[in-house]
Computed example of a mutant assay.
Amino acid sequence: MTSNETFPDDLLQLQERLHRAHAEHRAYLADLPWSVEPMKGWKRGERFSHRGDVPDSPGWTDEQKDTVERMRAELRELSTAVVNHPHWATVPRETLVKARMQLKQQARPAEAGDTAEAA
């Protein structure tokens, strides 16, 4: 493998979709209550907390739980498709990890600010 591996378009698209799905999943989780089930919060001195006071958590709604499960299923499906892509059978075993890391970098979506400048 050279330092500039050429990847099939469908593999690049799968990896980009995987990057985007991870970002959407992280963003969605960040907006959810801190506990899946309703749980009482605590003051900083009551328990260890690097965040200070922790408010009560109302838990997640059934719709939020379903959305998270759907997102996780999509992540599993995309991850499996990337890992099992036929291209990897053509890459020498000793350079496989390097090639996979290159794919991740090459297929990373542009940041929001980058796309605005390109338009």
Rank of each mutant, 00 (worst) to 15 (best):
Q15F: 01
Q15W: 00
Q15L: 05
E16K: 08
E16Q: 13
E16N: 08
R17D: 14
R17W: 00
R17A: 15
R17F: 00
R17G: 08
R17Y: 02
R17T: 09
L18D: 01
L18Y: 04
L18R: 00
L18W: 04
H19Q: 04
H19S: 02
H19A: 06
H19T: 07
H19N: 10
R20V: 09
R20T: 08
R20M: 02
A21I: 06
A21H: 02
A21Q: 05
A21Y: 03
H22E: 15
H22F: 13
H22D: 13
H22K: 13
H22C: 03
H22M: 12
A23S: 10
A23E: 07
A23I: 08
E24S: 05
E24Q: 04
H25Y: 10
H25V: 07
H25G: 10
H25D: 04
H25P: 05
R26A: 09
R26P: 00
R26C: 01
A27L: 15
A27F: 14
A27R: 14
A27T: 07
A27H: 11
Y28R: 09
Y28D: 11
L29Y: 10
L29I: 09
L29C: 11
A30E: 14
A30L: 13
A30I: 05
D31H: 14
D31Q: 15
D31S: 14
D31I: 12
L32A: 07
L32W: 03
L32S: 07
P33L: 12
P33N: 04
P33A: 10
P33I: 11
P33T: 08
W34H: 05
W34N: 03
S35W: 03
S35H: 13
V36A: 14
V36F: 02
E37F: 02
E37G: 05
E37R: 05
P38Y: 12
P38Q: 14
P38I: 09
P38F: 09
M39H: 10
M39P: 01
M39C: 08
M39N: 07
M39A: 12
K40T: 11
K40W: 06
K40P: 01
K40Y: 04
G41E: 00
G41F: 00
G41L: 01
G41T: 04
G41D: 02
W42C: 00
W42I: 02
W42K: 05
W42Q: 05
W42F: 12
W42E: 00
W42H: 12
K43P: 00
K43W: 07
K43A: 11
K43C: 07
K43L: 15
K43R: 15
R44G: 06
R44M: 06
R44W: 07
R44L: 06
R44F: 05
G45S: 14
G45N: 15
G45E: 13
G45M: 12
E46F: 02
E46K: 05
R47E: 12
R47A: 15
R47Q: 12
R47I: 08
R47W: 07
R47L: 14
F48W: 13
F48V: 10
F48K: 12
